[in-house]
Design a protein around this nucleic acid. Structure first.
Ligand SMILES: [Zn+2]
Length: 582
DNA sequence: CGGATTTGACCGGCGC
DNA sequence: GCGCCGGTCAAATCCG
């Protein structure tokens, strides 16, 4: 810093560079200072404005679902209870007779005795009463049955959701392993565990992925399952605050080294850890989205700060560089550029994983993207099937995929070219209404390095379902050197299977969730009609909590739900080109 | 006044 | 080693 030349000199790059390094340092320092950084993240998550939901019909649904999900076990009871009440209320309202019954219902046990007394009084009445009694009991029984069933369903749903997540994690894990086949014993371990038990795996994975050494907690966590995961999250939150995590998250970020002087000097060291950690041989995967939009930038639910603009050699239109500002230190970057041929098409490329939670809208997109990525990952064959499925069979996972992920309706392309693997989602050709029809899924190449990480790298969002359980994970996966290993190897098939499963699952879960929630809610049915889209909702839920701020972890569902209170970011673009039709 | 943009310079990688 | 090129920085500027 001292060395820094007069402000004016922009020509002295080395100095500048150095400065850059400093900045980085500063940032880190800042992060550290705010031990509660994680909190920030959490709050951020909280403040995803509801606006997003409002923007989009689908969003709302997601909301609801989300609640249900999270509530999961703890809130479950309450919810069901509520449900019961509602039920009863309805009944009473509808039938006059019922009113009486209702009362009786409450006192079921006593009924018998009471009846007896009454009987003593008068014969006819007695019979009537008996009848009524019977009716009452019958209804009551029915009601109970229904409630019980409802509860069961909920349980199942919960379970499903959980396993799905676990599975997904597993999948990620496996893929990762393959990608960097490094002799890490850890990897091996994780692998084995993954094969054995899903739940456990999830926990393990988390650990594994987790940058910092929290081995002790792990065991417990592993055993514990989801809940444990939550606790881990807390921990994670703490870590978030720490610089290391940040760096990890940044993954690909490279810190610029200063000119010689700096190097010689000690200063580098502090950064050192970050640098090394951050520095990766391979570029992280990217996700790019093509959408029609007049606006200079599509609204993806995140806040971005422009940090550069350049004229790309290929086209007349400049390319703009943005950085995510939703959370301090969020490493995610994106570049926006108009397509040379068709200027109405806006190409947005995302890189990195968010270190914070994303707004619902963003999550939806993220889901779609990740799902698409997964599909692509699964390999050419799978994709082919997928296409076929689109055309007709709805049983096929791919078909479901499209159903659930509106954004997917178009076309996803995976390209290995360039230093980084890139997944491209083409949203330009979709007719507004039809999700299924036009959609086509393409897998062009199978670049060596595509892995779930890519999905995570995804722009808008963090890994969907995972986030919930693996707060920190986002950091690790994305940056792994893709190059090391392809999906290749004997393992591949299993991976594919996993992927398929993963894809299939979400839908099911989603649909189920939608159905249930709508029923429970008694009000919102839209979800059913529109259906699957709700998947996003699910994901959102997961994300919200997942991100790991301790706060979030503490009261996940609540946080997610309530959070969207007030953050005023102006409802910027109407451009949901992506959202709606584009 | 603080935060976001603008914009020209700077850097590292890559191909020649 | 040089120049191109994609990215990034950060001073200057804009804007609410
Ligand atoms: Zn972000």
């Amino acid at each position: 810093m001292e060395l820094r030349p007069p402000p004016k000199q922009q020509h002295h790059h080395h100095h500048r560079r150095r400065r850059g390094g400093d900045e980085e340092e500063e940032q880190e320092a800042a992060a550290m200072e705010h031990g509660h950084l994680s909190l920030h993240g959490g709050s951020g998550g909280a403040f995803w404005r509801p606006r997003d939901e409002e923007e989009k019909g689908g969003g709302r649904r997601g909301e609801i679902k989300e609640v249900d999900f999270f509530l999961g076990s703890s809130r479950d009871v309450a919810a069901s209870r509520r449900h019961d009440d509602a039920f009863r209320g309805t009944h009473g309202g509808s039938g006059d007779v019922n009113i009486g019954l209702d009362l009786l219902t409450t006192t079921t046990t006593t009924t018998g005795a009471a009846a007896g007394d009454a009987a003593a009084g008068a014969g006819e009445e007695d019979t009537t009463k008996n009848h009524r009694m019977e009716a009452t009991t019958a209804v009551d029984a029915e009601l109970r049955r229904v409630v019980e069933e409802n509860r069961r369903l909920r349980g199942m749903l919960d379970e499903l959701t959980r396993s799905y997540s676990a599975l997904y994690h597993q999948y990620l894990q496996v893929t990762q392993q393959q990608n960097h086949r490094h002799p890490d014993h850890l990897i091996m371990n994780s692998n084995r565990s993954s094969l054995t038990q899903t739940h456990r795996t999830a926990a393990t994975t988390q650990q594994f992925l987790e940058p910092r050494p929290s081995s002790t907690a792990q065991a417990a966590a592993a055993a514990a399952d989801v809940d444990m995961a939550a606790s881990d999250d807390d921990e994670a939150g703490g870590s978030d605050a720490s610089p290391s995590l940040t760096s990890n998250t940044g993954g690909g970020n490279k810190i610029r080294r200063v000119g010689g002087q700096d190097e010689t000097a000690a200063p580098a060291r502090e950064n050192g850890e970050q640098q090394t950690a951050a520095e990766l041989p391979c570029r992280k995967p990217r996700v790019s989205v093509r959408a029609r939009s007049e606006a200079p930038m599509i609204s993806d639910g995140c806040q971005w700060r422009k940090y550069g603009q350049k004229m790309a050699k290929g086209n007349p239109c400049p390319r703009a560089y943005y950085r995510c500002t939703m959370a301090i230190g969020c490493p995610v970057r994106k570049q926006v550029q108009r397509c040379a041929e068709d200027k109405t098409v806006l190409i947005t490329t995302y890189e990195g994983n968010h270190n914070h939670q994303l707004p619902p809208a963003a999550t939806t997109m993220a889901n779609t993207t990740s799902a698409a990525a997964a599909m692509l990952l699964s390999g050419p064959a799978a994709s082919r099937d997928g296409a076929a499925a689109l055309l007709g069979h709805h049983h096929h996972p791919a078909a479901m995929f499209h159903h659930s992920f509106p954004y997917a309706s178009t076309m996803a392309t995976l390209s290995a070219s360039a230093p980084f693997p890139t997944i491209t989602l083409d949203l330009t050709q979709t007719p507004a209404g039809g999700a299924g029809a036009a959609g086509l899924l393409h897998a062009l190449h199978r670049p060596p390095a595509i892995h779930p990480g890519a999905a995570q790298a995804m722009p808008f969002a963090v890994p969907p379902q995972l986030a919930m359980y693996l707060p920190q994970q986002r950091a690790a996966p994305g940056m792994l050197p893709a190059a090391s290993a392809g999906l290749g190897g004997a393992r591949q098939p299993s991976v594919m299977e996993t992927v398929t499963a993963a894809l299939a699952d979400p839908n099911f879960t989603t649909a189920l969730a939608a159905a249930i929630s709508s029923v429970v809610a008694g009000g919102a049915h839209q979800s059913l009609s529109t259906t699957p889209r709700s998947a996003s909702g699910v994901a959102v839920a997961g994300d919200g909590n997942g991100n790991g701020s301790s706060a979030a972890a503490a009261s996940p569902a609540l946080t997610a739900a309530e959070a969207p209170a007030a953050s005023g970011s102006p409802p910027r673009l109407a451009t949901q080109s992506c959202t709606t039709s584009t």
